[in-house]
Design a protein around this nucleic acid. Structure first.
Ligand SMILES: [Mn+2]
Ligand SMILES: [Mn+2]
Ligand SMILES: [Zn+2]
Ligand SMILES: [Zn+2]
Lengths: 146, 146
DNA sequence: ATGATAATGATAATCACTATCATGATAGCA
DNA sequence: TGCTATCATGATAGTGATTATCATTATCAT
């Protein structure tokens, strides 16, 4: 299920987008990490292979990858500022640590039944959802006062 | 399950917070509407009973009410800008219309089993969650192209 | 009523993100 | 390989919601 930078580049090309060194640099960053990265962090890493890349290009590329469902956002629980993005697009959700902001993926949200209930209750034509759990990661939990 | 302005005021007092005319004005707004309101909208309504109230006081009061779980946020699906808040604190979630930004509540999220799974899978000490459905409300759905 | 303390609001600052637009690069095609 | 339409980039300035400061004022337990 892992996407290489070249695989993602191919998808961009299939959709009629041009392949630039900047985009390649960003794709390499996305393919090389397992972490959820902020746009700033992606920019920082991309600069090591393409020093003149602008932060704005990172934003634009992330927006493009997001439209193509190749990355997804993490919503911060408080303030909703600063989102992080990560490959790949496989449907999943996040557990966010309130202590250290660490983000871990999980799969299997089983929301189909609930979605049906909500549809019947509200009449909405539902096409997506956001689900996140919040709490303390094992490290922060161990460090927390008993 | 409806909270009157006075009831919320009592809770503020119990927690050692002072009761000001500004806070009363905001509480009256929150108690009087069934809608999800932005801070700006709350400010606008509060000004009718307390014209000199500042927007910043609305932000501070909403933050306080949020800490006390007396209001909750709505996360916008795209961009995560502009949140809306609403009484009361009863556990519930939101269905957000992508067409007109209308927000409807729903209850019964039944996430206990999933939370247990995620706990076992990630080791996180989970203490909360965010769940929202996105789609088109009946009105926008009817107006949309077939 | 007094005073310790908390709340307010004017103002300015942040901060992530976005719009503009002139310049430069990509890629399909001759 | 060169040409050209089109797309992408980045410098710059702008936006807009939220927050920090801080002097002033109001609340409420005593
Ligand atoms: Mn993820
Ligand atoms: Mn609600
Ligand atoms: Zn942690
Ligand atoms: Zn709608």
């Amino acid at each position: 299920m892992r996407f290489t930078a070249n695989r993602i580049a191919g998808i961009l090309r299939e959709h009629g987008h041009k392949l630039t060194p900047q985009r390649h640099a960003i794709l390499r960053v996305m393919a090389a990490t397992h972490d959820h990265l902020t746009p700033e962090a992606i920019h920082e890493k991309a600069r090591s292979s393409k020093p003149e890349i602008g932060l704005i290009t990172v934003y634009r590329t992330l927006s493009l990858l997001s439209d193509l469902k190749l990355v997804c956002r993490v919503h911060a629980p408080n303030g909703c500022r600063g989102y992080m993005m990560r490959r790949p697009a496989e449907h999943h959700h996040h557990v966010v640590c309130s202590g250290c902001d660490r983000v871990v993926d999980f799969r299997g949200c089983h929301l189909a039944d609930l979605e049906q209930e909500v549809l019947e209750e509200t009449g909405f034509d539902i096409n997506g959802h956001l689900l996140e759990f919040y709490g303390l990661c094992p490290d922060c939990s161990a460090a927390a006062p008993a």
